[in-house]
Design a protein around this nucleic acid. Structure first.
Length: 647
RNA sequence: GCCCAUGUAGCUCAGUCGGUAGAGCACUUCCUUGGUAAGGAAGAGGUCACGGGUUCGAAUCCCGUCGUGGGCUCCA
C-alpha cells in the first residue's frame, strides 16, 4: 500500500496514492489534447509518476509550452526516421527554435533537399504507428556505455559533459535518444509538421569542428496552424527587401563587386533623406560632422589594435601576390603599399580630437561621420543590404570625461528613441554585448563597463539581455535589434564604451585642476549602417515608405493625350513646391498607369482628365487607399504640405 | 571560408532521353484617346555565368572557378 499524497489540479486538491502517473492525477482535466504537464512548475511527461505532494497543471497541445514539446518530439521523430532510412548516421543535438526545430546529424553523406520528402514520409509512417514514447532513467556511466556500443560518439561526448549522475533516455519503438524531455505520450500526437531546409552546421558551432548536416523543420498542434505558418512565410517573402528593391528600382548588386550595393537614383533619395534627417538631429543634440580619409597607413591600425583584432575583415592595399602589405618601402611603387581601407571611423576620429590641445571645457566632444567603410566580410555572410562589404554608418564618437559617461549614454539612448519612434519601429530588443575572446584591456575594466551599459538601459526603461562574448574588441556594446520580414533580427543601433582607444592613441585633456586626464570614447550609431537600415525599413514597411522618404512622392497621371499640357502643368506646379514629382504622359490607359504607380509605391497619384482640366482640378488617389476625391490645385498643395515630417 | 541548392533575354521562368534556344513582362515602332491595378499588333533582344573535360555533337553529363539563395561562422 503506497502512502497517500495530495495533488492540486486546477485549484482543487485531491488525495491519491503516491506513484500514480501524472495522467492519472489529471484524470482528464484540461481536455483530450493534454500532452504534458507542469508539476510544481517543472515540465514533465504524462507518464511520470508522482511521489510527493504536487500542483499539476495540464499542458495543452496548442499552448506555447505544448507546441515546444511537440516540436521537440518531432525532432526526435525525424531523427528516428533518418536513422532508419540512413543506417550509420549519428545523431547529435536537436533542439527547438523559434518557429520550429532542427536536428544535426553526422551522416555518411550530407543530406540534400531531395532527401526531405522521403524522411517526411517515414515520419508520417512512424507517427501513424502510434509508438509509445517512454522515459527511462539510467546512470550516466551506463548511458555512456550504451551509446558507445551504438556508435553514437557525439552523444557520448555530450554525456561526458553532463554533471548529473542520472540521465534520461527516451525510447520510441526500437529507437532511443538521450534527452531531458518532456515528450508527447506517443508519436500519434505529432500530426502537423514539415521539413523546411537542409544546411551545414559545425559541431558545437565551432568551425574547427566537423561539419554536420542539419535539417530544419517545423511542427504545430494542428494542420491549420501549420498551414497558417507556411502562408505567413510566403507573405514575408513578398516583402523581402532584395525583391522590392529590384522592383522599385532602388538598388542593384553585381558580381563585379560582391556584397556592394549600387544605389540607383531612387534608392539614393532614401539614403539622402535619412542622412538629412540625422543631420537635423545632430544640430539639435550637439554633434559636429566631419569628413575623414578613406585609406590609412597600417601604422594607424597597429596603434588602434585593428591590425591584431580586425585585420581579417579589412581590405588591404597590396599589388603583390602573397604579401601582407605591411611594409611602406620597397620599390618605386612602395608608397602605394601598406595602407588599408577603413572598416571603422574611430581611429581616424582620434586625430580630430588631437587637432587641438583639449581641456575639460571642450568635453563632451561629439564627432559624427557618414564616411564610407569597407569590411572584407566572408562570402557566405553576405545578404542583400543587411550584410554588405561597403557601408556608411550614422557614426559618431563622443569624447568625454569619465564622469560624463552616464549622461552621454542617456543622450544617445534618447536619440535612439526619437529615431525609432519617428520611423515606426515600436518593438526594439536590447542587449549588452560583453567581453569577446579577442579584446583589449583587463577583465575588470570590462566588467565595470558592462555594468555601466546595463544600468543605462535600466535607467531608460529598456529591458535587456546579456549577449556574452559579443562585444567589440575595444569595449562592451549596447545593441538594439529590430526584426525583418522573416523575423530574423538585425542589429541596428549600437552604443559602445571604450577606454582602450584613448589609451592607445594617448588622448588627454586638461582638467579644471590643471592636471592631464584621459578621456573616454563612446562609439555609437543610431540607424546603424544606412544600408542595413534601408533594407530593414523596406521590409518593415513593405516598401510603402512615409512621404518624406518616398523616392517619388507624387505622380501625375494623364488620362489621354488631350490633357497632356494640363498634366505637365500640374506636375510642374507640384515640383515647384519642392516635391519629388513626375508626370506619366505615356500613351497608355489610366488603369495601366495606376497599376505602375501602385507597384512603384508612389504615395500620391494625381489623375487628370478632361473634366479636371476644364475645372482646373485634380482627382486624387492615395497609395493603397482612397481614390476619386476631386480637389482644386491649391487644396492639393495644402494636402501635400500637411504630410508629417519628423522633427 | 564551410555544407546544401542554384546560375538560360533587363526581370520571372520553360527547355524531355545530349542533336547548337523558348514564353510572359519590360524595351522599340505602329494602331487605339481609353476614367482609377495590365487595350491590340509587329519588332528587336541570348558567347545558355566563366574555364576545362567526356562525346561525332553539350544549355543538358563530369571537374574547377565566380556569383546568388538557405544555413554555420562572423558582424553594423
Amino acid at each position: 500500500m503506497s502512502p497517500a499524497i495530495s495533488v492540486t489540479v486546477n485549484g482543487a486538491t485531491h488525495t491519491v496514492a503516491a506513484g500514480v502517473s501524472v495522467r492519472q492525477a489529471l484524470d482528464g482535466a484540461g481536455g483530450r489534447d493534454v500532452i504534458a504537464a507542469r508539476v510544481n512548475g517543472k515540465l514533465v511527461d504524462m507518464s511520470r509518476p508522482l511521489e510527493h505532494d504536487a500542483t499539476v497543471e495540464p499542458i495543452a497541445a496548442d499552448s506555447p509550452a505544448g507546441i515546444e514539446v511537440i516540436r521537440h518530439s518531432t525532432a526526435h521523430l525525424m531523427a528516428q526516421a533518418v536513422q532508419s532510412l540512413f543506417p550509420g548516421t549519428q545523431v547529435t543535438i536537436g533542439p527547438t527554435i523559434e518557429d520550429g526545430f532542427f536536428y544535426d546529424f553526422a551522416p555518411a553523406r550530407p543530406f540534400t533537399v531531395e532527401d526531405l520528402p522521403r524522411i517526411e514520409q517515414k515520419m508520417r509512417e512512424l507517427a501513424k504507428a502510434d509508438l509509445k514514447v517512454e522515459r527511462i532513467e539510467v546512470a550516466r556511466d551506463e548511458a555512456i556505455e550504451t551509446f558507445e556500443r551504438m556508435g553514437e560518439h557525439y552523444k557520448v561526448e555530450i554525456l561526458e559533459n553532463i554533471p548529473e549522475e542520472r540521465v534520461s533516455i527516451y525510447k520510441q519503438g526500437d529507437w532511443m535518444d538521450l534527452c531531458r524531455g518532456p515528450h508527447v505520450p506517443s508519436t500519434r500526437y505529432i500530426r502537423a509538421f514539415k521539413l523546411t531546409s537542409v544546411a551545414g552546421a559545425y559541431w558545437r558551432g565551432d568551425e574547427h569542428n566537423a561539419m554536420l548536416s542539419r535539417i530544419y523543420g517545423t511542427s504545430f498542434a494542428t494542420k491549420e496552424a501549420l498551414e497558417e505558418h507556411l502562408q505567413l512565410i510566403e507573405l514575408a517573402r513578398t516583402r523581402d527587401h532584395r525583391k522590392l528593391g529590384r522592383e522599385m528600382g532602388l538598388f542593384l548588386f553585381d558580381p563585379i563587386s560582391p556584397g556592394s550595393p549600387f544605389f540607383l537614383p531612387k534608392g539614393a533619395i532614401i539614403y539622402g533623406a535619412l542622412v538629412d534627417y540625422m543631420r537635423r538631429l545632430y544640430r539639435r543634440y550637439g554633434f559636429d560632422e566631419v569628413i575623414t580619409p578613406q585609406v590609412f597607413k597600417n601604422e594607424l591600425w597597429h596603434t588602434s589594435g585593428h591590425w591584431e583584432n580586425f585585420r581579417e575583415n579589412m581590405f588591404l592595399t597590396n599589388d603583390r601576390e602573397g604579401e601582407a602589405g605591411d611594409e611602406v618601402d620597397a620599390g618605386s611603387d612602395g608608397w602605394r603599399k601598406g595602407y588599408a581601407f577603413k572598416p571603422m571611423n574611430c581611429p581616424g576620429h582620434t586625430f580630430v580630437y588631437r587637432a587641438e590641445k583639449r581641456s575639460y571645457r571642450d568635453l563632451p566632444l561629439r564627432i559624427a561621420d557618414f564616411g564610407r567603410l569597407h569590411r572584407a566580410e566572408r562570402s557566405g555572410a553576405l545578404h542583400g543590404l543587411t550584410r554588405v562589404r561597403t557601408m556608411a554608418q550614422d557614426d559618431a564618437h563622443v569624447f568625454c570625461a569619465p564622469e560624463q559617461v552616464a549622461e552621454e549614454i542617456d543622450l544617445n539612448l534618447r536619440m535612439v528613441r526619437d529615431v525609432y519612434t519617428a520611423l515606426g519601429f515600436e518593438r526594439l530588443e536590447s542587449r549588452v554585448a560583453t567581453m569577446p575572446e579577442k579584446h583589449l584591456g583587463t577583465a575588470e575594466t570590462w566588467r565595470a563597463n558592462e555594468a555601466v551599459l546595463g544600468a543605462a538601459l535600466d535607467r531608460n526603461g529598456l529591458p535587456w539581455e546579456e549577449n556574452p562574448g559579443e562585444g567589440a574588441f575595444y569595449g562592451p556594446k549596447i545593441e538594439i535589434y529590430v526584426p525583418d520580414a522573416l523575423k530574423r533580427k538585425w542589429q541596428l543601433a549600437t552604443i559602445q564604451l571604450d577606454y582602450n582607444m584613448p589609451e592607445r592613441f594617448d588622448l588627454t585633456y586638461t582638467t579644471s585642476a590643471g592636471s592631464e586626464a584621459r578621456p573616454v570614447m563612446i562609439h555609437r550609431a543610431i540607424l546603424g549602417s544606412l544600408e542595413r537600415f534601408i533594407g530593414v525599413l523596406i521590409e518593415h514597411t513593405g516598401g510603402v515608405l512615409p512621404m518624406w522618404l518616398a523616392p517619388e512622392q507624387v505622380r501625375v497621371l494623364s488620362l489621354s493625350e488631350k490633357v497632356e499640357d494640363y498634366a505637365a502643368e500640374v506636375a510642374a506646379l507640384i515640383k515647384a513646391e519642392g516635391w519629388r514629382a513626375s508626370a506619366d504622359l505615356r500613351n497608355e490607359k489610366l488603369g495601366f498607369k495606376v497599376r505602375e504607380a501602385e507597384l512603384a509605391k508612389v504615395p500620391f497619384m494625381v489623375v487628370v482628365g478632361e473634366r479636371e482640366a476644364a475645372a482646373r482640378e485634380v482627382s486624387l488617389r492615395l497609395l493603397r487607399g482612397a481614390k476619386g476625391q476631386t480637389l482644386g490645385l491649391a487644396a492639393l498643395l495644402a494636402l501635400l504640405k500637411a504630410e508629417p515630417v519628423p522633427a
